[in-house]
């Protein structure tokens, strides 16, 4: 195993190009578990913690551009008002120790269907910025996930940042786990309401091979919501929204829960998230 510690982003990209099998590490909350428990022995590791721009965020043409090394704690403390859905999701990530180290960039790199950041990123149409020595490209987050723990990155690429619009309306996130803290999602749901464009975005976590959007549910509810007067949707509408979210999931039975329960829970969470969000609209 080799250990690289680039001081600059261009150096990092060059190293990744030269060592495409190298594993990038920032917060270590996924990578170190694999190393400590002997699940993985990468040929090389590239430590990206020396690259200061990765830990920074700013605006880029109306979008927030958030460096891949920004931690969950930073997201909660510095961006909670602009990205409330992601902040709620971040608060459910592990413990303070984990949130102080873990990053959305790492969550994307691992691309676990259970990654807590994914549903809010999907719900607000985020993009992932990938970089290599041959250039930079931006991918819609929905296209980024390609399978369980698989993503659309080329081997010579690193995640530079993600881009997301500041909230234009209420956002919610909800996650089921079998303990009251420190738990990997059995399933999760995110909702982002755009009051200006009258759009609703959704994201489903841990109930399919990749994080998913519930497109039909989004379309349904966009048509049903009383955008003028903001009246509470009927129980039947809320329930239907939940059903459509559940229908969009592709869950399996695994060690954390059953497929049937996941669908059931998604319907409940979707209904509740919508009700909470709309009440705040």
């Amino acid at each position: 195993m080799e250990f690289f510690q680039p001081a600059t982003w261009s150096e990092a990209l060059a190293m990744k190009a030269a060592h495409p099998e190298a594993m990038p590490i920032v917060g270590g909350t996924d990578v170190m578990v694999e190393l400590n428990l002997d699940h993985r022995r990468p040929e090389a590791i590239i430590d990206l913690t020396r690259i200061s721009e990765l830990t920074q965020w700013g605006t880029d043409d109306g979008l927030l551009r958030i460096g891949a090394g920004v931690t969950y704690s930073q997201l909660i403390n510095e961006l909670g008002d602009r990205l409330p859905g992601l902040a709620i999701a971040s608060r459910t990530v592990g413990s303070p120790q984990i949130r102080n180290r873990g990053t959305v960039g790492g969550n994307l790199g691992t691309a676990s269907p259970a990654g807590d950041a994914h549903p809010p990123l999907l719900a607000s149409d985020s993009q992932v910025e990938l970089a290599s020595t041959s250039g930079v490209r931006r991918l819609a987050v929905g296209e980024f996930f390609t399978g369980p723990k698989r993503n659309a990155m080329r081997k010579d690429e690193l995640i530079a940042a993600f881009l997301v619009e500041p909230a234009r309306g209420p956002q919610q996130f909800s996650k089921v786990g079998t303990r009251n803290a420190m738990v990997i999602a059995v399933c999760s749901f995110a909702l982002a309401i755009d009051l200006e464009r009258r759009r609703v975005g959704s994201g489903i976590g841990s109930a399919g091979p990749t994080p998913l959007r519930a497109i039909e549910a989004e379309e349904f509810i966009q048509g049903e919501l009383d955008w003028e007067n903001r009246a509470r949707p009927s129980d039947a509408t809320l329930r239907r929204f939940g059903e459509l979210v559940a229908a969009a999931a592709k869950p399996i039975d695994d060690v954390r829960g059953t497929a049937t329960y996941r669908r059931h829970a998604l319907a409940v969470m979707a209904r509740r998230c919508l009700e909470w969000a709309w009440a705040a609209a």
Partner: peptide, 15 residues
């Protein structure tokens, strides 16, 4: 100055 789990920091990252 940040609270972390030492098990999740690679030795070299502490340089």
């Amino acid at each position: 100055g940040t609270l972390v789990c030492a098990c999740l920091v690679l030795g070299g990252q502490a340089n």
